[in-house]
């Protein structure tokens, strides 16, 4: 049996007394492409911040290859785990410098400048994410979507084992959404990169992730393969929204259709008339 790569054991963290995770336990194998889904306020971001270390664990622990993340030095952790936050902070530096910051965890003491290898790696991921043409521009001159792409390029430049992303596609149009997720998927397949991302779009989650964690009220509602998680019953229970699910004819993954109130009433009306 393959051992668990990331093991979250009865993790509780949160914001004072107002909101806390309820002893969440999740295990991921290396090389998995996992997604965290759930409605607003369900604890997705809290779980994410717990794993990335922004929020301190109140109880429980997080093991990466059986090593407690809390015991790792920050620089050691940054060589294994890269984080893309939802709103990348755009500083007054060029895109190239911004992406090169991803090589910081690998610097030697008293190393003030990036090595040639650092530059090669940064260039590679700038090209893969499509921000290379903007390399000499300032981060603040990019659009929100381009900044997000640069943030992903920076995280990939860390060449991590585990990539954590908080809504990496939220500012992107469908071209870039698919482009980025395809890239992450390819790296996931080819380099065994383990991915854990928060994603709001259930259809993208179904299509790209092979493991989904559905959060509700600070707890895991259900987790498993997309087909098991994304059925209308779970979605209606957690999101309080009526949906229809069908499988994507090409991929066989579930696809979720929303139903407007007007249509819902018409259907109910028709159903009632038939019943009479």
């Amino acid at each position: 049996m393959v051992p668990d790569y990331l093991k979250i054991d009865k993790l509780s963290c949160g914001y004072g007394r107002s909101f806390n995770l309820k002893d969440v336990s999740v295990s991921l194998k290396q090389g998995v492409f996992a997604g965290i889904i759930g409605p607003n306020g369900s604890g997705k971001t809290t779980l994410f911040k717990g794993i990335s270390g922004v929020l301190k664990a109140k109880s429980g622990n997080i093991l990466l290859n059986d090593v407690d993340l809390g015991n790792l030095k920050l620089s050691e952790k940054a060589r294994k785990v890269a984080v893309v936050s939802q709103f990348p902070d755009a500083a007054d530096i060029t895109v190239e410098d911004y992406v090169l910051l991803g090589r910081l965890p690998f610097r030697q003491p008293f190393q003030f400048f990036e090595s040639a290898r650092d530059r090669v790696i940064a260039r590679k991921y700038m090209q893969l994410t499509g921000v290379f043409p903007h390399a000499k521009k300032l981060m603040t001159q990019l659009s929100g979507g381009e900044q997000q792409l640069a943030a992903i390029a920076q995280a990939l430049t860390q060449e991590p084992e585990l990539l954590l992303m908080d809504e990496p596609t939220s500012h992107l149009d469908i071209t870039h959404q698919v482009q980025i997720l395809n890239l992450i998927q390819r790296l996931n397949r080819e380099t065994n990169l383990t991915v854990l991302m928060i994603i709001h779009d259930l259809n993208l989650a179904a299509e790209y992730c092979d493991f989904l964690i559905m959060m509700n009220n600070g707890d895991v509602h259900i987790m498993g393969a997309p087909l098991d998680v994304l059925n209308y019953k779970n979605i209606e229970e957690v999101y309080n929204t009526v949906v229809v699910t069908q499988n994507n004819p090409l991929s066989g993954k579930p696809a979720i259709f929303l139903v407007s109130e007007k249509v819902l009433k018409e259907v109910q009306e028709r159903y009632r008339q038939k019943g009479n």
């Binding site: 990335s52 270390g53 922004v54 030095k73 920050l74 620089s75 050691e76 952790k77 940054a78 060589r79 785990v81 890269a82 984080v83 936050s85 990348p88 902070d89 500083a91 007054d92 530096i93 410098d97 911004y98 910051l101 991803g102 910081l104 965890p105 610097r107 008293f110 003030f112 860390q158």
Partner: peptide, 24 residues
């Protein structure tokens, strides 16, 4: 302070992000 030049660059992106880049 020059020993902290690169950490200072990372801090341009905020304390959380600097932490993710391995900066205390």
């Amino acid at each position: 302070s020059y020993l902290f030049a690169r950490p200072l660059n990372a801090l341009l992106l905020g304390e959380d992000k600097a932490g993710h880049l391995g900066i205390n």
